[in-house]
Amino acid sequence: MRVALFITCVNDTLFPGTGKAVVSLLRRLGCDVDFPAAQTCCGQMHVNTGYRDEGVRLARHFTEVFAGYDAVVAPSGSCAAMVREQYPKLVRPGSRGAAAIAEVAPRVHELSEFLVDVLKVEDVGAYFPHRVTYHPTCHSLRGLRLGDRPTRLLEKVRGLELVPLPAAQECCGFGGTFAVKNPAVSAAMGADKVRNVLDTGAEVLCAADNSCLMHIGGTLSRQRTGIRVMHLAEILAATDEGTRP
């Protein structure tokens, strides 16, 4: 199966390891992975901060770059939700833009959706002998309704002990530019999330969005907790031989 990787601008720039993990994982599962180099950003930051014109421009660019692929895989619940849930609201119904979005949006999948729903695989052959807790990010939980797909995948990882995160469904307080526009509330929410993570005794906090992990992980690191954050893709890509693609 020929799959286009939508890496997302945050992963591309700050977390290339997540992208490499997705490539490694999908190739291991027999996919032919392509990276359309013209891709940039889904436009979520602009749209959600109130800069709709810039966001619409980026959305148009996205639909052009990814037109014609059978499947587009994004290692981000938030960016996949942007394309699927928010793109249709940016254009007039019946317009050319609406048609282009209707064409591409249903073929955009968050990683765990692609694995479970499209490839129909839950045991991806990973090995990760650590105690892990999983935070369901808001846009994967309430936007995409990923449900238990990510934890089903994690439960099948050899050696991995999955411990439940208390109050898992509560927002971590990242919220894009919310984190800097409302820093006090964002930090308070982050501190509560961190306390819940510490209560699990996990070594690793896992999520399907690096932007939320950047916020929680930045707080974990500032508090010198010693807990690592890892994207779902990085755990699923890990094997006895390591994670090299």
């Binding site: 808001c138 309430r142 469904q169 509560e170 307080g173 919220g175 919310f178």
Partner: peptide, 11 residues
């Protein structure tokens, strides 16, 4: 309008 992380719990 910015007093929200857009977490969607309200909806």
């Amino acid at each position: 309008p910015y007093a929200s992380s857009l977490c969607g719990a309200c909806y």
